[in-house]
Design a binder for these strands. Structure first.
Lengths: 245, 245
DNA sequence: TCTTTTGATCCGTGATCACACTTGCTTTGA
DNA sequence: TCAAAGCAAGTGTGATCACGGATCAAAAGA
């Protein structure tokens, strides 16, 4: 099985020339689009999504959309109302605290595991993301939230991928999907309070990873997760029942 | 909103007569059927599932089946092969260790949280399940694995429901879905080694919950999760590549 | 006898349609 | 003027069909 057939095309170095082409279905593209929109917070909490509406916007039939929505529902990224319509979950303080607690526990374990498994190459790959981040900050004065959130996501998942648990990764992805709609607002709220600490936080994490200090990495990540949510929590408690309608 | 309309039918005691009827779609029934089969280990690891085949067995069209399978795929209960066919994930030692580790962490946190929140009524409800278990064991000499696994599931989730985290519950359900196909074989393997300790384990858990001792509850649960898997792990290492084909 | 090719069959994907239910607005009545 | 009935547009669910790709077995060739 691990041997190549006699007819397998090989390069002069002995390796195979072609890697399998990826076959992306329409459903996959729809799912990826919605998922990205959810994680980046482009969809407002409480917003109702209709199959036909999304199908029209995405210029497909209803079929790929309903299956993509079904996947998102079972990942708790969107919720199915008893009317059988679906909406992105509204943000409440209870749900916020719940998400922060679970994320701290699970992602904390992931970085702790990663800290004891990451090679020098792994760490330097993560540092590269931080460098790109710094360059972006210095170049563009106006803040590009979409790019920043994508870099943040890459930073974290580059680490999580090193934890060695293929069971944990999908769980963490689901948690990010659930906290995505909050995060955007949280990022805004936090940016006002001064977002430079985020970079500092990330640097502490990488240092801990490089030193193989699992406890320090876990603590630094906990701070990183907790920080934007405290700002959002304050905003929710003060202006109260705005999103509860 | 909390007031009844003037036209709301009320009983003589003042309460409403009718509660909302549940609307179960075909897709929900298909999903529930597959899910139950998966958790109870009725489906063999590595087995390939076809949409048309399941639709024929369940006497429906392909539509509800493909959507139910889509949900199960995104919950990692089954896996999608590059051929676009789906199968029950095969059992490997690495996956086994991964599942045990993650389950111990997450479910351990859940029982620890539950230990500090459960009321006397909650604890007695859990004890009732153990009593039913004892009665079942004493009555039928031949072992009814299906019933036993359902009681085990009820026991654990009755506790987890008390942890107060609506984010954790779906994650734990997904983990059970993933370890279901292994568990059946593990239960067989463990039953030979003497399964009376399971009842003891559960009793220790309930005692810890009643005392509100989070640490003891977590430790007892960890032992409960670990035990059947060690037997299965031994079996896999000895007879080796049986399921790897 | 073994390899290769060809053909039929099966399967997943996506499109389209019919049906039942919900929703929101208009009309009708007091 | 207001509330209730009625109507119409919109939505999710499920069935059916067409199309492209995958799989497997039989047949043709070396």
């Amino acid at each position: 099985m691990t041997e190549f057939d006699a007819t397998t095309i090989q390069s002069s170095s002995g390796g195979p020339v072609f890697s399998p082409v990826e076959r992306e279905t329409v459903q996959d593209r729809v799912y990826a689009t919605l998922r990205s929109a959810l994680i980046c917070g482009l969809l407002e909490p409480g917003q109702v999504l209709t199959i036909r509406g999304l199908a029209e916007q995405l210029a497909t039939s209803t079929m790929p959309v309903r299956e993509a929505l079904g996947r998102l529902i079972s990942e708790k990224a969107v919720e199915a109302l008893p009317n059988r319509s679906v909406r992105v979950p509204p943000v409440t303080i209870a749900r916020l605290n719940d998400l922060v607690h679970v994320r701290t526990m699970i992602e904390g374990e992931a970085v702790a595991m990663a800290a004891q498994r990451m090679t020098k190459a792994d760490v330097s790959r993560v540092r590269t993301i931080l460098l790109e981040w710094d360059r972006m900050r210095s170049l563009s004065q106006e803040e590009d939230f979409d790019h920043e959130m994508r870099l943040n996501q890459n930073f974290h998942f580059e680490i999580y991928r090193c934890c060695g648990s293929s069971v944990m990764l999908p769980i963490i992805e689901s948690l990010w999907l659930q906290s995505g709609p909050c995060i955007r607002e949280a990022a805004y709220a936090f940016s006002e309070a001064g977002g430079v600490d985020t970079a500092h936080c990330h640097r502490v994490i990488v240092d801990a990873l490089e030193a193989g200090d699992a406890g320090a990495a876990r603590a630094a990540l906990a701070a990183d997760i907790e920080r934007p949510f405290t700002a959002l929590r304050q905003r929710l408690t003060t202006q109260g029942a705005r999103t509860s309608a």
